[in-house]
């Protein structure tokens, strides 16, 4: 296994610092928006964490999806590590999205949840699947059969994404109107874009640090388990 232990603390430290700086800049430096066209103009500052959380959780879900495929196709141990890390990171950052989104929605549009919002619905669904996987990994005995079932559920979660997108689009056609999150990409100030970019980079660095951290935890657990087995064998001789 690759040794990532040296990267863990530096990546996490840099990530945390960057994320905090983003929050500070977002609150105190980023420009205000026009209070005539926004119902809750200060609430827009949530964007500096909400959007990076969404991008990072997307990465995490992608790792979960790819890991499920690798496990399913080849029973690859590395695939399984990707499933465990992807589900944990997906849960962590996905929770961030489904907490910040509705709070912002309630402030700006008076509506915490829009069944017609494809992104919010799919993030909620994937976060629910990630929560299921994380809880199951902690409660079920590890083994090939458990991994098969959980990888299947991981894949199931992904096939639900287009199903959810279809269902949400149909719903939105019937109930047009409220959209929780406007597309952030149109007509943005350069300063807003800068802080958003900093937030994205910081969270990605933090994400990389947390992935390395979890990878090292996995390696350490394996090493300890192997050593304990060796000690068990020697004590029986």
């Amino acid at each position: 296994m690759r040794d990532v232990s040296h990267a863990v603390v530096p990546l996490i430290t840099v990530g945390i610092i960057g994320t905090i700086v983003t929050a500070i800049l977002g609150f105190f430096w980023a420009p205000a928006v026009d209070s005539n066209s926004w119902n809750a103009p200060e609430a827009y500052r949530i964007i500096y964490w909400h959007v990076p959380f969404a991008w990072v959780s997307f990465l995490a879900f992608a790792i979960l999806f790819l890991g499920s495929i690798f496990w399913y196709a080849k029973r690859s141990d590395f695939g399984w590590v990707m499933v465990t890390i992807g589900s944990e990171m997906g849960l962590l950052f996905g929770l961030g999205v489904v907490i910040s989104g509705p709070i912002w929605g309630a402030a700006e549009w008076g509506v915490p949840w829009d069944w017609g919002d494809v992104r919010l619905n799919t993030y909620a669904l994937l976060t629910a699947v990630a929560l299921f996987l994380v809880m199951s990994m902690r409660s079920q005995p590890d083994g090939e059969e458990t991994r098969d079932t959980l990888a299947a559920i991981g894949l199931f979660g992904f096939i639900l994404v287009p199903i959810t997108a279809m269902a949400t689009t149909i719903w939105r056609n019937r109930h047009p109107g409220v959209i929780i999150i406007e597309t952030e990409e149109t007509g943005m100030d350069s300063e807003i874009r800068l802080v958003l970019f900093l937030g994205a980079i910081s969270l990605m660095v933090l994400f990389a640090g947390l992935v390395s951290l979890n990878y090292e935890l996995h390696s350490l657990r394996k090493q300890i388990s192997d050593k304990e087995s060796k000690i068990d064998e020697e004590s029986m001789q």
């Binding site: 069944w115 909620a124 669904l125 629910a128 699947v129 929560l131 299921f132 809880m135 199951s136 409660s139 079920q140 005995p141 083994g143 059969e145 458990t146 098969d148 079932t149 959980l150 299947a152 559920i153 199931f156 639900l160 199903i163 959810t164 269902a167 949400t168 149909i170 719903w171």
Partner: peptide, 26 residues
């Protein structure tokens, strides 16, 4: 699908049922 797990009573199956909200809404 959840019952395949060896300790299925310890797994929160209801989380996977969230997707069925959409047919219900329809």
């Amino acid at each position: 699908m959840v019952a395949d797990l060896s300790r299925s009573s310890a797994a929160p199956a209801s989380l996977l049922l969230v997707v069925l909200v959409w047919p219900f809404l329809e």
